[in-house]
Computed example of a mutant assay.
Amino acid sequence: MNYKIHEFPNSRIASMDVCEIGKHKHHVTGLLEFDVTESRKKIREYNKIHQKKISFNAWLISVIGKTIKKHETACSYLIGKNKIITFDDINISVIVEKNLNGTKVPFPLVIEKVNEISVESIAKEISMAKNQNVTPKDIILQKRTGQIARIYYLLPKFLRLLFWKYLLKHPKLAFNKMGNVSFTSIGMMGKIKGWFIPISVHPICFGIGSIIKKPTVFDNEIAIREILNLSILIDHDVMDGAPMVRFINELRTNIENGLKI
């Protein structure tokens, strides 16, 4: 019998705990298709005439932040039994893949005030995070773990899960540590026809899939367009169905029209 045993970094333990807690969130899941043909064209034109380049993901994060700001309930936290708390800033936790001891490992990077900063600033933060050195003890990029965080990895599972439950019952602490929006993209890894549904403890989470060229109706004609597969998780505890639809409709308009490129 031949086999190999590999040790994974401590950050994977935190990811497993998040998945365990996230399964109990009352998220409503949407599987969406957005026509990003015009938006990607505008980004290519922008990069031709500007020295500071922007990526599609950086622009998409910017659009999401600015759109959510107009529908703030979508990123609110439940506090107590019948209250929600809404923060002024849109802080988005973005998954950045880094090389750790020869292994590619996803790390969350919290980009703050996404509703205010420029696309160029977002692109710069992501680029810096990718090039930043990390150790197996890091959980959140740009925020070095202290003694308490190191102890976290030594705790048994039931105590680690209690930590996450405590965090979510204290929204101010949760917002400070992980923001109020989650964004993860596998589309940059390769072309995948379909959607993936992430698990999250955030009030709202975006799973960005691939951009696929496919025939669709455009201006009453069949045309080959660039279609983005995107999944969205929204906490039904803080946002009802009708406001969800209005938010998604505005998001669709902003993404497909190339908001502020």
Rank of each mutant, 00 (worst) to 15 (best):
L230S: 00
L173A: 07
E226R: 10
I126N: 07
S127V: 11
G179S: 10
N101Q: 13
P171G: 04
I227E: 10
A149P: 03
S127C: 14
E112M: 09
N99E: 15
N99S: 12
I208H: 10
F163K: 01
V181L: 08
S210D: 09
N229C: 12
F183Q: 05
S118C: 00
F175T: 01
A174N: 05
G209H: 06
K104D: 10
I148G: 01
N133P: 06
K104C: 12
K193S: 07
I197G: 11
A123N: 15
L230P: 01
V114F: 06
E226D: 15
T145H: 11
I204T: 09
V96E: 00
K137P: 04
L100V: 15
V105N: 09
L162Q: 08
N99F: 14
K172Y: 14
N131L: 12
V105P: 05
K113M: 14
Q147K: 07
K113P: 11
L100P: 11
K177A: 02
Q142T: 06
D219C: 08
L167H: 05
F183E: 03
P108Y: 02
K137M: 10
L162S: 09
L100Y: 14
L155F: 04
V94E: 04
S118V: 00
K165G: 04
H202K: 08
N101Y: 13
I227A: 07
I122Y: 06
P203N: 06
L230R: 02
F196Q: 06
L155S: 02
K137D: 13
A149D: 13
L162V: 04
P106A: 01
L100T: 11
L100N: 12
S118G: 00
L141F: 13
I111T: 08
L162G: 08
K165F: 03
F183H: 06
I126R: 12
P171E: 09
Y153R: 01
S200T: 05
